[in-house]
Amino acid sequence: MDFASQFVQQLINGISLGSIYALIALGYTMIYGIIKLINFAHGDIYMVGAYIGFFAITMIHVSIVPALLISMVVTGLLGMLVERLAYKPLRQAPRISVLITAIGVSFFLEYTSMYFVSPTPRTFPAVFDNVSLHFGSFMVNGQQLLIFGITFILMVVLTYIVQKTKIGKAMRAVSFDVETAQLMGIDADRVISITFGIGSALAAAAGVLVGVYYNSIDPLMGIMPGLKAFVAAVLGGIGILPGAMAGGLILGVIEALVSGFISSTFRDAAAFAILILVLLFKPSGLLGKNTREKV
C-alpha cells in the first residue's frame, strides 16, 4: 500500500473512532454548558449504554437499530435519575463537592455493573455480515458505515433540537443565565434533567456503536473513552456543541494517524499531549472565544 492510500485508510479509521468520541463529548459539553459540571461519570454512562444494547440484542433478540433506540431511552432515563439523586441536591453546593460526587457516581456505576454483569468482557454479537466496500486500495467496512450514518443522524437531530425547538432554546437560555431563564417562566430543573437525558442517550449510542465496532465490552470500558471524550470537548471548546463534534473527530483522526504511522503505543499519549497543548495555548478550545477565565 502506498502512503496516500494508507493515509486515507487511517483517516477512515480515525473518523470512526472520532465519531464515538464526538458522541460522548457532546454529553460532556452539554452538561458542562448547563451546570458547569465535568461529569466524570459520563464515560460510565456510555458503558451502561453498551450493556443495555448488548442485552437488547442477546436477550430480546432485536436488531441493531431498535437495540440502539432502546439503549438510548433506558440510558437517558438512567442519566436523569443520576442527576436527580446525585447532583440536584448539590445545586447550591461548591463546585468541588459536585465534582467529587461525580467521581463517586463513576465508581458506583463501574462496580455495580461488575456485580451484575461480572467483570469479564462480553463478546458483542455480530449484528450483520461482514460487508466491506473497497475503493481502490482502501476500504470501509459495514460497522464503520453504521457509525458514520448513526453519528451523522444524531448530530443533525441534536442540532435541530438545540437550535430550533422550544426546549432547545430553553437549554441555551439556562446555560447562558439560569436566573434570567427562570424569569422567562422556564423550569430550570426540568431543563437540566432533560439535558442529562439527551447527553446520556448520545453516550449510549456511542456505547452500542463501539460494541458493534470492537466486539468486546466490559464494565471498565468507559474510563479511557470518557477521558478522551473530555479531551475532545476541551479541544473543541467546552460548552460548545460544534466544538465537541469537531474535537472528537480531530482527536480520533490524530490517534489513528499516530498509531498508523508512528506506533499504537503512543496513541493515548498523543491524546493527552493535545490536552496539555490546548490548555497551554488556547484554553478556551478551538471554537471558544479567547477569554481567560477569572481565577
Partner: peptide, 12 residues
C-alpha cells in the same frame, strides 16, 4: 420582571 442590567440573552 425586567431585571437590573437587562440580562438579555446576548448570544441569541
Amino acid at each position: 420582571q425586567v431585571p437590573e442590567g437587562r440580562r438579555i440573552f446576548a448570544n441569541m
